[in-house]
């Protein structure tokens, strides 16, 4: 018994040490960002900068919400990112199920085609994409992003979901099929509950992929009423000048939804294995 307590303490110590190191590494740049968002302009740049500034201020946040159209950008981004996430995850769940569990000619071709769409970076695709979109009259319309963003989100979702679905033992589904479920029912009752932690992760990342997208948003939207958060943040950059207070405070605000979403997703879909077929 003594030995197992010792092992437990050793394990906990290791966990906390690793956790601490990882947190410092992750948070240091974040700290610098948050610190800058609370630093008065006159202390923004200093020689031999210090970890803790001599003065703090909330004025950048105040200015951000009162003087700039930032909230409108947030609203647009939420609209786009949430819709794109729901659409893409739903489409991908169906597609991935088909690709992992059903057998039909052309399956391998489809599987490869999905990921081949990533072979050219957005940095060279945005011009042909803009040309195509404006042909449908969708330029300067945020809804164009609803059409375009699935192209960056769906391949990711499909591939991650395929890998999660593959990890689920086939026997579980076969049992459901024998019990008289059809394919879609077994997807809903067996596969999805087991894969739900994975789906939570996929949804969160799908959300951040569209939330942080920049280049398509830049060319496809023009007026503030249509534009998203990333454009709003970049607009605090002017040639060789940057309004650091606003740039950093807006970035801090913009990173909140993804983290929040991850937690919500975890909470809603925590059921995981417990809800699955294994009793």
């Amino acid at each position: 018994m003594r030995r197992s307590t010792y092992v437990k303490i050793r394990k906990l110590t290791a966990l906390y040490v690793i956790g601490l190191v990882a947190s410092v590494w992750t948070l240091f740049p974040i700290y610098w960002l948050v610190k800058s968002s609370l630093t008065p302009n006159k202390l923004m740049y200093t020689p031999q900068p210090k970890l803790i500034p001599a003065e703090w201020t909330f004025s950048h946040y105040q200015e951000l919400f009162t003087k700039s159209p930032f909230l409108g950008f947030v609203k647009n981004s939420l609209y786009i990112a949430l819709l794109v996430t729901v659409i893409s995850v739903a489409i991908s769940v169906l597609g991935s199920y088909s690709l992992t569990r059903l057998r039909f000619p052309g399956r391998g071709f489809m599987l490869k085609s999905i990921i081949y769409t990533y072979l050219l970076p957005v940095a060279v695709l945005f011009i042909p994409m803009y040309v195509a979109i404006s042909r449908y009259g969708l330029n300067n319309n945020k809804n164009a992003l609803l059409v375009v963003y699935p192209t960056i989100v769906v391949p990711y979702c499909c591939y991650m979901l395929i890998s999660y679905f593959k990890a689920i033992p086939k026997e579980l589904e076969e049992a459901a099929l024998i019990d008289g479920c059809n394919r879609l029912q077994s997807l809903a009752k067996v596969i999805l509950p087991i894969a739900s932690p994975g789906i939570a992760v996929v949804s969160t990342f799908a959300f951040t992929l569209s939330w942080n997208e920049y280049l398509y948003a830049l060319v496809l939207t023009t007026t503030p009423a249509q534009q998203t958060v990333t454009i709003g943040i970049a607009s605090f950059n002017f040639g060789d000048q940057t309004i650091w207070g606003l740039l950093t405070s807006s970035s801090v605000i913009a990173s909140i939804p993804a983290v929040l979403l991850y937690f919500l997703a975890q909470r809603f879909l925590k059921t995981g294995l417990a809800a699955g077929g294994v009793k």
Binding site: V86, I87, V93, L94, L184, A188, L192
Partner: peptide, 10 residues
């Protein structure tokens, strides 16, 4: 809900 959404969205 998700499945219905998927069909509509599709």
């Amino acid at each position: 809900l998700a499945l219905t959404g998927a069909l509509l969205a599709g």
